[in-house]
């Protein structure tokens, strides 16, 4: 099925359509997608790395699947995520602020969450607005919660979204990987390192 729809930075509008309903399909193993277009995984790696390097506040949002040491695989991914974060921090200029903000809980928090230190899938826009996050990557978030969040972010913010999914990927992210492993996360860190200095940092407002 061909489609004209592109999954682009928002704010699209209050309730954007689910990208899947607009004809966006998930990549096959070895592939990824950029703005809804199926591409080779390496191509998406480069785009994701460039996004991190050109963002004012490049941020990783690790979810419960990697925040908790459920098993060795999960702990290994957590180590790789930390490595990616440290790499981004090293590779950006002092005017850029890399962040690592957890999504420890999916339950809506009343009366409010603390957007400085956490993100909640039911209102991810609060954390994004508060920290002025312009590029983020979801990793270790259960699919249904990631889908919900990605759509809210696309609907109401300017943030560029990347999904490092352990399953089949996310149509609603601007860049989506599938079958995430610790190695794949480290590979993305290598791309960031490789492209250091070749990407123009964001201009001050």
């Amino acid at each position: 099925m061909s489609t004209m729809y592109q999954v682009l930075r928002g704010p699209e509008h209050f309730l954007p359509p689910a990208a899947a309903s607009m004809g966006i399909r998930l990549p096959d193993p070895g592939q990824a997608h950029i703005h809804g277009k199926i591409v080779n995984e390496d191509e998406a790696m480069e785009v994701a790395a460039r996004q991190f390097l050109s963002a004012k506040v490049p941020t990783i949002f690790p979810g419960p699947l990697v925040l908790w040491a459920w098993n060795e695989k999960a702990a290994g991914k957590a180590t790789a995520i930390r490595h990616l974060y440290e790499t981004i921090k090293e590779c950006v200029t002092p005017s850029q602020q890399a962040m690592l903000i957890p999504m420890p809980d999916y339950r809506p928090k009343y009366p409010k969450i603390n957007p400085e230190i956490e993100i909640n899938p039911n209102h991810p826009n609060l954390t994004i607005w508060h920290n002025k996050i312009d590029t983020c990557m979801f990793v270790g978030v259960h699919c249904h919660q990631a889908n919900l969040s990605l759509k809210i972010i696309r609907g109401g913010t300017y943030c560029y979204t990347i999904a490092m999914c352990a399953q089949a990927g996310h149509e609603d992210a601007m860049v989506s990987f599938r079958d995430a492993t610790a190695d794949k996360i480290r590979k993305l860190a290598d791309w960031v390192k490789k492209l250091k200095g070749s990407v123009e940092p964001p201009k001050d407002d």
Binding site: L67, W68, A74, A75, E118
Partner: peptide, 11 residues
């Protein structure tokens, strides 16, 4: 158990 690399960022 929290993954050791994530402990410091957890609320």
């Amino acid at each position: 158990k929290i993954a050791p690399e994530m402990f410091d960022i957890m609320p």
